[in-house]
Structures are given as structure tokens and as C-alpha cells.
Nucleic acid binder design. Structure first.
Length: 810
DNA sequence: GGAGCTTCAATTTTT
DNA sequence: TTGAAGCTCC
């Protein structure tokens, strides 16, 4: 026991050792939250609790995995593997499967993922003959999801005057019907969606006290990670399970609550103490991750929030570097600036690429950043994006597997129907669906005898349907005879998927086949592991129940690369150096979050999360113009920048006082030119940055672009600025009338006069997109006059004067 | 049933 | 601008 807690500080020890009643552990950023949780679990085991008496709930598979590994190291792997430690969804799914009979489901019901849900909703909206522009699938889905997470059933939804009024106000009065229909169809398909797992767990516990009592008895101690992210449904499950013994420990940080949009209720953590009056509060306030300056500037920001639990996060590390704020003329320049800084810092500090993270508020911002990284030969990875199990080819195969256990699974039938193509089109599918709806039976039932259900089709079609049905039945007969691995290999042959995939040519085909191979490899591993552990069941059912909720990334990318990700995705991670980009009004905070105080506070917490990811250095950047939704938009620096303690911001960083309120593209040239000249070392000079252009570039492998078609059309640094990119700056004063009058010099030309001003070799210029630079050459005349400019952040460019939106400065 | 066209919208995301 | 989704035509 002592050994487990020997590396903890006093606060952490108290939190770990207290287990007389409910406790709330407020764990500031970087305060060793996971350590406390894992040590607590280890202590409980040492105190004699059986692993299966401990319920430890997380939000992600990754968190659960990591925690399990750490517990395994503290105690023994065997005990660790027997803990009830996992995500809310995976553990309660397990319970639901066990208790399925109690609420009239088969134990191998299907689990619908977001795609299935949306596809079903789309069908229902069509069937109800509602306008799919008014009833957008995504908004209907989110209303239903929010309702479920708030434990509002379809019936409650229909009967709630408030909700009905709200739906009428937003011109979607029939969401209640869609909801009801959706629930009915899920039940018919013997399927549950993610939200149902929690919702139905509540229903189960509500309607079956005897079952609840069993699980209460089992879970002697309950721990919840990231409690600030719990929704009403999760809150209530925990409350019910902990009712008899009240031994529950929740850990979280209200300042890091950033998921209200998906139903998380920050009140759960704020009100924990009133919900559990006898509870004890522990605060972990020492941050071990970040320097004092980073912790303090984050504190100065978050102190602007009203709704929070009082705490004083502090660091005993060195003061560290000041926080830098960098301004750029455009999104492109911002990206180059960040890329340049990363390259420079890496060389100077002998750091790894992976010590750097570039964070942004929206995914769309990654584009320019990626481009800048590629141009600078900086290897990077974009974190997030599509997970393995969301790929079409994987989902198609899993649909077949799901059908084996549950042929009533409508979404899976539809998938299997469509792929590989069987000559059965939408027309036939619609007929089948209509019949299924009219007779109140599943699609599969209709398929078993289409004619009996009034499906009118020609013989060819009927034969195809019969062939499909036979194939499924034939496969079903084998399911229990083979391991998943063997079965799936057979399935790929029988269904024609293998043959079809071989037909695919090109890069995408290769990727698809590789993904299928990975799926098979995963299945093989599943079987091996099971056999090694002495579990004989390597069936598909066993596999599917394990995989149903695996939606996280199987990222094995351990290469040394810079991380690019949204701020949301960065939660829980840490990096030596963090760049937070796009610090502009309407981006961060996002436009949609400016309406209410609560939303604005969440955006502030989001920035708090971003800043506290940094260990040693943190820089925030903004651009004065940004290309968004096909237009160049001008923006003002984020209001949050003004909330940061100015004493912790590096001198020479962008001045924030002047541009506010002024016209976004005011005439102050000093603003743009001085703002980004400073460097981390505090040597504030643009020369310093220019010099890095000559640094020998360490070669590094080019990262694979995410899309299959790498963008090759980006303006090469040697070419004249293309009209296409010029179009991106409609506000630029450049016109055809800017033809220059050249003055000859010793080599080439020394200067040129144009309607934009006088350009001389060696002169400083300010370009709307590339920012500040110095002219190195002038050649050609008239329309062909080209000016070579060495830009501070964008490197050398040869620009056609005619198009360049550039003016001399100084 | 698929290639190619038009249209339309455009935070954040795990399970 | 991108991309997804729907529509048309072969």
C-alpha cells in the first residue's frame, strides 16, 4: 500500500486514501488525475476488494486502456483485467446484454452507430413525407440524442409543451413523431444506438429493482473519470448504483468542461456536493506539467468565468518563457509563421517534432497549416478524422457480421444489399421497406417471403432477393462452427466482396484492401489472445460484442511528427510546445457561441484547455484576414487575448490595444510589420527570423497527405503569384493599371515605379498575404515586371507586380 | 448502377 | 473553397 502511494503528494494521498463515502476530486490541469485514479483502484484492491467489485468509468476507450495498463503495473495484470473498467457505453452494454431478457431484447442485439442512426432517420423523414431541407437529419438526430441523454422518452418529448413549442418555433413540429418512429424501428430491428445504451440502462434499473439491487451489490466502489463530461443519463446511473453504499469517487475539472454540445452537463460536477451532502472535496491544485507562466496565464483567462469551482492551480516549476502572441496578415502567413517557428525552435532546442502541437478551433483551419508544414518539409500528423471502423469497406463487412447474429438489423441489411452490388436497386429496396412498414415486420421477415407481403416485382428481381437471403442463411449456418477469423475469410469469398475489391484499381483500391487486411489481422489477434487466455469462445458473437463500441483510432503512428489537431481533440494530451492558432473573433470564440454567457464560458474553458496542454512554451496567433467558406474575411483578434494577464505576454508580441474597434484593415502599417518579428528567445528582430531561411534543413520524410490526391497545385515559391490566389484577396487594390516603369541598375533592375508605389531592391515591403519581406530582385518590364521578395515567414517568392497586392513600407 | 453535373451548406465529437 | 448529396443521362 505504502509503495503505491509513495510518489504522491499530500493532496493526492488524501484523495486516494479516503473511501468512507462519496468524494469529489477536482483535478486541475496536469495535476496527476490519472495517477490518483489508478492508485486509488490499486489501493482498493490491496484493501481486499475483488476486482469485479470495482466499477471504473471513463469516456474513451483510450482512457480506459491506459488506466488498465497502469493498474496492471501497480498490482497484477490478472486483477487488472478483471476490473469493471471501461467506458460508460461498453460496461453498460455488457450489463444490458446480460439482462436483455428483462426488457424484451435478444442478448445479441445490434448497436447502431451514428451512421446507422442517420440513415434510419433519413428513411423515416422520407416516409413521413417531410421536407428534408426543413428536417435536416443532423438536427433531428441531435434533438433526439439530446432528449435521450436528458432521459426524455419519445412520449415525454411529445407531451412536453416546452419542447413542442421549441420545435414549432424552429419549424420542426414533427420531430416528436420522428422520434417515436425511430424508437419503434430500432426496436423492430433489435438495435440500440449509443444513447440508448445509457437510456435503457436507466430504464432497466428503474423498472427492475431486483436487477438494480444485484448490480448495486456487485459494485462496491464506483469511480468516474472526467466527471465534468457526464450527462443526465450517466449521472443518474451512477447515482442509482451508488445508492446503498455511497462509495463513489468522481474526478474531474469543471474548468475543462468542453462537451456541453453533446449533452455534458457541467452542473453535475458543480452540484456534486449538494447531490451528495456528506461528500468530501479534494482539490489537486499543483500542476506538474507546465511552467508557472503558462499556469498563471491560463488562470488569468479562466478567472473571467463566473460559473466555476474555486481553486488555485499553481506550478512549482520554473517561471519559464513568457507567452507569445503573434499577429499575421492572413491565415496563410499565420501558418508559415507557425511552421517557421517550429522549424527554428526544433533546430535551436534540439527538440523532436513530436514535442510540438498546433491547435485550432475548427477542422477547416488545418488546411493552410498542413500546406505550410509540407512546404517547410515538416513532418506532421493530423490527429482525429475518420477512425478505422468508419471506413466504408470495414462497415460493409461488419454489416454482414452483424446480420449473422441479428438478421432483423435493418441498417445492416441495407448495407449488405448495396455492397457488393447485386442488381437490386433503390426501387426494390423501397418496395421492401414499404411492405415492412405496412405490415409492421422487419425487413428480413419481408425478405423471407416477399410475395406474401405484397411485394410486386419481376421474377429476375425475386430470384435475386432469394439468392441474397440464401447466401445470408448459408453463412449463418456456419457462424458458430468457425472462429471469426476463419468465418470472415469465408464470408469475403461467399459474398463476393473479395472479388469486387480486387476489381478496384488505383490508390484507393489498395487502401481498401489494406484496411480489410488490417481488419482480418485484428480478428486473428483477437482469436490468438483469447486462446492464450484460455477462453475458447473465438466466435463472431464474442468478437462483435467487443468491437461494437471500438470507434477510436488504432493509431500506431509513433513517428516523430508535429501534431495538428482541434483543441477538443487535444484534451488530455500534453506537449512541450503548443501553438494555438486562429485566435480571432468568430473563430475562437466561435460565432455561434457568442450568444449566451454559458456558451462563451465554454469557449473560454476550451482555450484554457488549449493553453494548459503546453509544458514549456505556448504561443497564440491570429490573422487579420482569413479565407473562409470561399471568401476572404477580415477578423479582429479574439476577445480572449485581452483577458490574458499582460505581464505574462512577451514584449514585442503583437500589440492588442490599437486594432480593436478600428477598421480591420486600418492603415497602421506598423501593426502588421512589428507584430510577428519577435522570437521565443526574446530577440525581437525580423532579421533574426530571416536568417533561419538559410539554416540547413534537416531532411525528414514527407508526411502522407490525408487525401488520396495530394495538392500539387499550390503556388510554387518560384512562380509568379497566380491569378487564382490573387482572387482570394478581392480587397486588394491590385489592378491592371499597376504596370511599372522600370529603372535600370547594375544587375537587372534596381527599382520600379508603379501605381502601388516605388519598389527598390533591398526595400521592405508588406504583402497582403505573405506579410513582410525584402525585395531582392526586380526584372522584366511593364506587365511582365517580376519582383523577387524574401518574405519573413513565407520564404522567397517571385511575384508578378501586376498581381501582387504589396506595398513598400518604411 | 455509375459518371458527371449542380446545389447547398459550412463548430467542436466520443460512444 | 471544399464536400456531400441529389439529380440526370447513358
Amino acid at each position: 500500500m505504502d509503495k503505491i502511494i509513495e510518489n504522491l503528494n499530500d493532496r493526492q494521498k488524501e484523495a486516494v486514501l479516503y473511501n468512507q463515502g462519496p468524494s469529489l476530486v477536482i483535478a486541475g490541469a496536469g495535476s496527476g488525475k490519472t495517477k490518483v485514479l489508478t492508485c486509488k483502484v490499486a489501493c482498493l484492491l490491496k484493501l481486499g476488494l475483488a476486482p469485479w467489485n470495482i466499477l471504473a468509468l471513463t469516456f474513451t476507450n483510450k482512457a480506459a486502456r491506459e488506466m488498465k495498463e497502469r493498474v496492471a503495473k501497480l498490482v497484477d495484470p490478472r486483477s487488472a483485467s478483471r476490473l469493471w473498467m471501461g467506458t460508460f457505453h461498453s460496461l453498460f452494454l455488457r450489463i444490458l446484454r446480460t439482462e436483455a431478457a428483462a426488457f424484451g431484447y435478444p442478448s445479441d442485439f445490434s448497436v447502431y452507430d451514428t451512421n446507422d442512426t442517420k440513415s434510419l432517420l433519413k428513411t423515416i423523414i422520407k416516409e413521413l413525407q417531410l421536407d428534408d431541407k426543413t428536417y435536416k437529419v443532423s438536427s433531428v438526430a441531435s434533438r433526439i440524442s439530446n432528449a435521450k441523454n436528458a432521459l426524455i422518452s419519445a412520449e415525454d418529448y411529445f407531451n412536453s409543451p416546452d419542447i413542442q413549442q421549441r420545435d414549432r418555433d424552429s419549424r420542426m413540429p414533427r420531430v416528436a413523431q420522428i422520434y417515436a418512429q425511430y424508437v419503434a424501428r430500432c426496436r423492430q430491428a433489435k438495435a440500440m444506438d449509443f444513447d440508448d445504451i445509457l437510456f435503457n440502462t436507466n430504464v432497466l434499473f428503474r423498472d427492475h429493482p431486483e436487477i438494480l439491487a444485484q448490480w448495486q451489490e456487485r459494485f462496491q466502489y464506483i469511480l468516474v473519470d472526467e466527471y465534468q463530461d457526464t450527462n443526465a443519463s450517466q449521472y443518474l446511473i451512477v447515482k442509482k448504483l451508488a445508492e446503498p453504499h455511497h462509495r463513489v469517487c468522481v474526478v474531474g475539472d469543471d474548468s475543462q468542461s468542453i462537451y456541453s454540445f453533446r449533452g455534458a452537463n457541467i452542473e453535475n460536477i458543480l452540484k456534486f456536493q449538494s447531490n451528495y451532502p456528506e461528500s468530501k472535496l479534494f482539490k489537486l491544485e499543483q500542476n506538474y506539467r507546465s511552467t508557472q507562466n503558462i499556469v498563471n496565464i491560463a488562470n488569468s483567462l479562466i478567472s473571467n468565468n463566473q460559473n466555476r469551482i474555486k481553486k488555485e492551480v499553481f506550478s512549482q516549476r520554473e517561471k519559464g518563457n513568457l507567452i507569445q502572441i503573434m499577429g499575421a496578415m492572413s491565415d496563410v502567413e499565420e501558418a508559415y509563421m507557425v511552421a517557421g517557428k517550429i522549424a527554428e525552435m526544433r533546430n535551436r532546442q534540439y527538440e523532436h517534432w513530436a514535442d510540438f502541437a498546433v491547435l485550432y478551433r475548427t477542422n477547416a483551419q488545418s488546411r493552410v497549416l498542413e500546406e505550410a508544414m509540407r512546404k517547410r518539409n515538416i513532418p506532421y500528423r493530423v490527429y482525429g478524422g475518420m477512425s478505422f471502423y468508419q471506413h466504408k469497406e470495414i462497415k460493409d463487412i461488419l454489416a454482414y457480421l452483424r446480420l449473422m447474429l441479428n438478421p432483423d438489423d435493418e441498417e445492416s441489411i441495407k448495407r449488405a444489399f448495396k455492397y457488393p452490388s447485386k442488381g437490386i436497386g433503390d426501387t426494390t429496396l423501397n418496395k421492401l421497406q414499404d411492405a415492412s412498414r405496412q405490415h409492421g415486420v422487419s425487413l428480413w421477415t419481408v425478405l423471407e417471403s416477399p410475395i406474401n407481403y405484397g411485394v410486386v416485382a419481376n421474377n429476375g428481381t425475386l430470384n435475386k432477393l432469394a439468392a441474397f437471403r440464401q447466401m445470408i442463411e448459408q453463412l449463418q449456418a456456419k457462424v458458430n462452427e468457425l472462429s471469426v477469423y476463419d468465418f470472415t475469410q469465408m464470408l469475403l469469398q461467399v459474398s463476393g466482396i473479395s472479388q469486387d475489391m480486387l476489381k478496384e484499381t488505383g490508390v484507393e483500391g489498395i487502401t481498401h484492401r489494406e484496411n480489410v487486411q488490417s481488419l482480418l489481422a485484428g480478428m486473428h489477434e483477437f482469436c490468438q489472445t483469447r486462446l492464450e487466455e484460455g477462453i475458447e469462445d473465438t466466435s463472431m458473437a464474442a468478437y462483435l460484442s467487443e468491437v461494437a463500441l471500438n470507434t477510436d483510432q488504432d493509431e500506431e503512428d509513433n513517428e516523430d511528427k508535429v501534431f495538428l489537431m482541434t483543441v477538443h481533440a487535444s484534451k488530455g494530451l500534453e506537449f512541450n510546445n503548443v501553438f494555438v492558432t486562429g485566435m480571432e473573433e468568430n473563430i475562437f470564440p466561435s460565432q455561434r457561441s457568442c450568444e449566451s454567457q454559458a456558451e462563451l464560458e465554454e469557449e473560454r474553458r476550451l482555450l484554457y484547455v488549449a493553453i494548459t496542454r503546453a509544458g514549456n512554451r505556448c504561443a497564440l496567433s491570429f490573422a487579420k484576414s482569413r479565407f473562409r467558406n470561399g471568401n476572404t474575411e477580415f477578423s479582429r483578434p479574439s476577445r480572449f487575448l485581452r483577458e490574458l494577464d499582460p505581464r505574462l505576454i512577451e514584449q514585442g508580441s503583437a500589440s492588442l490595444s490599437s486594432p480593436f474597434g478600428a477598421s480591420p484593415f486600418g492603415s497602421s502599417s506598423s501593426y502588421g510589420s512589428s507584430s510577428y518579428g519577435s522570437s521565443y528567445s526574446g530577440q525581437s528582430s525580423s532579421m533574426n527570423l530571416q536568417r533561419k531561411q538559410t539554416y540547413p534543413q534537416r531532411t525528414s520524410p514527407m508526411p502522407k497527405p490525408r487525401s488520396t490526391s495530394p495538392s500539387m497545385n499550390t503556388a510554387s515559391s518560384m512562380s509568379a503569384e497566380s491569378p487564382r490566389s490573387w482572387k482570394r484577396m478581392p480587397a486588394s487594390p491590385a489592378t491592371a493599371s499597376t504596370v511599372g516603369q522600370a529603372v535600370p541598375g547594375k544587375t537587372g533592375l534596381a527599382s520600379v515605379q508603379s501605381s502601388k508605389g516605388n519598389f527598390v531592391v533591398g526595400q521592405k515591403v508588406l504583402h497582403d498575404r505573405f506579410g513582410e519581406g525584402r525585395i531582392t530582385s526586380i526584372e522584366g518590364q511593364g506587365d511582365n515586371c517580376k519582383i523577387g521578395v524574401e518574405f519573413v515567414h513565407s520564404g522567397f517568392k517571385m511575384l508578378l507586380l501586376k498581381f501582387a497586392s504589396m506595398r513598400p513600407i518604411e
